[in-house]
């Protein structure tokens, strides 16, 4: 079984990203969408929780949501892949179960 986690909250406001990472098993994928994309930025007080989990979890971030918020791709933590809606669909299809961390 493999699982896709989606996170749509800023990690600086809620614990959603931390909780999702704490419940992701090695080999799982995590996609940041909506306000969740702030979790993909370098240099925040929460960047380390993503960097530290990078060896076990594949991280993705929604490109259209980054652009809407004026976040330059250069400020994204290395190793996080930027995706579009079609990629989001593919990620859901590739993983056995999707869990939205609301």
């Amino acid at each position: 079984m493999s699982q896709l986690h989606t996170v749509n909250k800023s990690p600086l406001e809620r614990n959603t990203l931390e909780s999702a990472i704490a419940h992701a098993i090695k080999g799982n994928a995590l996609l940041m969408i909506e306000d969740g994309v702030y979790g993909a930025m370098q240099g925040t007080h929460k960047s380390a929780i993503v960097s530290n989990a990078m060896s076990d979890i594949s991280f993705y971030v929604m490109g259209p949501d980054l652009k809407a918020r004026g976040i330059d791709e250069k400020r994204i933590i290395d190793g996080i892949k930027i995706v579009d809606y079609s990629d989001f669909v593919a990620l859901v299809a590739e993983h056995d179960v999707t869990q939205s961390w609301l």
Binding site: N8, I33, D35, S86, V89
Partner: peptide, 29 residues
């Protein structure tokens, strides 16, 4: 075969927008 659940109303939260773009992409794919 997908199904989608939407738990927020329009305009206040982005959920319905994201769900729309996701669904449209899934159908187009």
């Amino acid at each position: 075969k997908f199904s989608v659940m939407i738990s927020e109303g329009p305009y206040t939260h982005q959920a319905s927008d994201t769900a729309y773009h996701f669904t449209k992409a899934a159908l187009e794919d």
